[in-house]
Write a protein that binds this DNA or RNA. Sequence first.
DNA 1: AAAAACCTCAACCGCGTGTCA
DNA 2: GTGACACGCGGTTGAGGTTTT
Length: 288
Amino acid sequence: MEVRSSSCSSYQSEEDMDVRKGPWTVEEDSLLINYVNIHGEGRWNTAARCAGLNRTGKSCRLRWLNYLRPDVRRGNISLQEQLLILELHSRWGNRWSKIAQELPGRTDNEIKNYWRTRVQKHAKQLKCDVNSKQFRDVMRYVWIPRLVERIQASNSDSPPQGQPGAATFSSRVNYQEDNPATESASEWVDSNPLPDSSVDTQVSPVSDLTTECQNPQSGYYSDSVQTGSGFYPDNNGSSSWDWYNYGQGVQDVQGIEQQGDGLLSGGDSLEELWNDESILLLQQHLMS
DNA sequence: AAAAACCTCAACCGCGTGTCA
DNA sequence: GTGACACGCGGTTGAGGTTTT
């Protein structure tokens, strides 16, 4: 398809044009793809004009980044990705674009949506604020360790073929090969037992998350939960989270876990880590 | 089978920041 | 210094799809 360039010469402000909004059509997508293939990303207002799109530059940029970009990855968020999101959010808060940088192919929008629809839903179920200490503790001492266990299990049992939303470890590793600067959050945590505002510039060797997960005794989570060292929230960054008594948090949640078997049931998605009983137990604990 | 409730996610909006003339 | 413009980010919305009643 030919990229129209005639409209490029005559500038029309967005106010002058009757700018289109709403869902993109296939033809609009093609126009934008063609334009970016030829001219590259950036200068979105110009792109909108020169590609003959009756859209704002902002809209073009968003469409490209969230949907049309060739490396954008769609489909269910894998367990590994869920783990990364939880870890990174606990460190960086709602800095979605920063978190997205650690999940190649995922967009900030997607991660933000995931957080709002899945994670906040569970906070609601537990009748606590998603930013409350209680919910953070639950995430940190119950949810994340269970996710790690699930990842270990699914990795050691059988290839997670056919599982809903299962991006395999190998795909995760491939991401890292594609993007060597990307480090595993688990590894980061392992090598950074204390909060460190320098994390932004840190580049650690690429790790294979599989290896770490295959060895629960040496894994970060089991160690840290037992010893009270490890994954701390960051009070240096933009996150508003405070320091808190990590050891007490461990005791709290261990108490929850001791209240019954099946606190967290099996399943392949993060949602399935929760069942009615576990929610009830956690609610009771949070009330006390 | 139909209506209501719920969920997901693409897209929009407002605001802050950076750059340049 | 400052105004205009482009860009990027996080919050929010709403249409459409799915599930429940």
